[in-house]
Nucleic acid binder design. Structure first.
Length: 110
DNA sequence: GGTGTGACCAGCT
DNA sequence: AAGCTGGCCACAC
């Protein structure tokens, strides 16, 4: 049943991210069992725009809580605005209290 | 169809 | 302590 590749799994996990929460690439990759594929997660975000799915890529940042991929949203302020819109504070392209908003990948979908 | 690339992470020097 | 390299896997040319 889990024929979905690591790439597809990434999308599923990201869509599981609740409102006002964020997670890191490594957390997702590690959760899937491939910590080394952290960059694949980020890259999946890039494809998320062209993908037919709605992926809240703005809720995904690096382990430092830094908005590294903000450039890929078409504008380097979209990602920050989206996060702030959810109640997340951002300073210097970094999430304030990142751990407080950090959400652990839990695909408890059943 | 092979090679390169990519929004990362962690270990080694 | 800081800088560089490897690793992972799917997509584009």
């Amino acid at each position: 049943m889990e024929e979905q590749t690591f790439f597809k799994k990434v999308y599923k996990v990201i869509r599981q991210i609740p409102y006002g929460k964020v997670t890191s690439y490594g957390a997702i990759a590690s959760y899937l069992g491939t910590k080394g594929s952290a960059r694949m997660v980020g890259w999946a975000m890039n494809k998320s725009f062209t993908s037919s799915e709605n992926i809240p890529a703005h809720r995904v940042v690096n382990r430092n809580g830094m908005l590294t991929g903000k450039h890929h949203f078409g504008s380097p302020n979209i990602m920050q605005q989206l996060l702030e819109s959810e109640g997340i504070k951002i300073v210097d392209d970094k999430i304030v209290d990142f751990q407080k908003f950090f959400w652990e990948p839990t695909t408890k979908n059943g």
